[in-house]
Simulated scan of single mutants.
Amino acid sequence: MDKIHIRDLELYCKHGVYPEETFLGQKFLFDVTLYTNTRPAGLTDDLEKSINYGEISNQIKDYMSKNTYKLLEAAAENLCRELLLTTKGLEKIHLEIKKPWAPVNLPLDTVSVEIERGWHTAYIAVGANMGETEKTVQEAIKEVGTIKDTTVTKVSTLIVTKPYGGVEQDDFLNGAMEVRTLLTPEELLAELHRIEAEHGRERVLRWGPRTLDLDIIFYDDLVMDSDELTIPHIDMQNRDFVVDPMAEIAPYKRHPIYGKTMKELKGELHGELIGAAK
């Protein structure tokens, strides 16, 4: 991805742990890398098709003047969030905040905090087979769209599927959605669990009936396995209630482990020949 650099933007701000820092203020230096697509601007020579680094510099100045933080970590986190939420075309930001006059009573050049934050694309499967399933699923989709720093960008058709896992129970209503989010996988999972709990979800029987099920299927091309979360969702390639809705909204999304698209996985699951001659 293309980059626009702002180096050593010098601002006088009032951030720090000690009272004199927040009262008197001190010098800070900002190194910013903006990740965006500069090709439209390069082809047209039109500033409106790029990110105006002058406006960004002044936005940083205004934001850091109007807000006070004790920690550089908090200042960096909140500044990145502000820029990502308000800057059209900004996909990712790399930020270093330097504090040349850090009060440590020792000779030093500078202290700094450096972070990288950006937008992520996640895919979430939704399902229910207890109560008013369609109402619950539709409400859940809307509620996912209200999660902080998260937007639902695509929603699949809802389909009725047979239960998975051998537990005798009612059919499920299933679907999938694409979301754009600033949250980490763990933060997103916590929000999904909150929504499930608000709809009466109880984790009693594995593969058993549930009022609402929200699972992260993909998060960018991340591959992770922890006690709380596995991405891609385990065994999703063998579950038609996941693969079919995913093939509808993201047919060319590739499984980061198997390297196959959702369209290909759907074909294999249903015994179809993808790309066969008509």
Rank of each mutant, 00 (worst) to 15 (best):
T261G: 06
D221G: 07
R7S: 13
P163C: 07
L95S: 07
E55G: 00
L9W: 13
K99H: 10
E55C: 02
Y63K: 06
H270E: 12
L95N: 05
T151P: 00
D46T: 05
M246W: 01
P232R: 05
G54F: 14
A276M: 09
T68L: 06
T36C: 15
R203M: 06
G131A: 05
E139W: 02
I60T: 04
P185H: 10
V223D: 04
K278L: 10
N174Q: 02
H94D: 10
L84S: 07
K61G: 00
D213L: 10
I159K: 11
V160I: 11
P245L: 02
E264S: 05
L212V: 11
I124H: 01
Y35E: 11
I231Q: 03
G271K: 04
R81H: 07
E82Q: 14
L34H: 03
N105E: 14
R210E: 04
L189D: 02
Y53M: 09
E143G: 01
L173G: 03
I231V: 11
G267C: 15
Y12A: 02
F23Y: 08
D225Y: 05
K278C: 03
D213A: 13
T110I: 01
T230R: 09
D221V: 00
D171P: 01
K27E: 14
I93H: 00
Q237H: 15
P100D: 06
R117H: 02
D235N: 14
H120A: 05
R239I: 00
A197R: 15
E187S: 07
D170H: 06
R194G: 04
E114M: 10
V242M: 11
T110Y: 13
S156R: 12
H5S: 10
E132T: 06
D235R: 14
D220R: 08
N67F: 13
G259D: 01
A140R: 07
G275D: 08
R39G: 00
P209C: 12
D235L: 06
L11D: 00
T33H: 04
A128I: 11
K266Q: 13
D62S: 10
G131L: 07
V204T: 15
T110F: 08
G271C: 12
K263S: 13
E187G: 02
D235F: 05
K148T: 00
T44L: 11
H233F: 01
L72D: 10
L265M: 14
Q59A: 14
N78G: 01
H233Q: 02
V160E: 10
T87Y: 04
V155A: 14
I56S: 02
M236T: 03
P19T: 06
H199E: 08
G54R: 13
V17D: 04
E178C: 08
V179L: 05
A75N: 06
C80R: 03
D170N: 15
Q237Y: 12
W101T: 11
E191W: 01
V152C: 05
T153K: 13
N105C: 10
L72M: 14
D2I: 04
T133Y: 01
I216A: 12
H233Y: 01
I97G: 04
R194D: 08
Y123E: 00
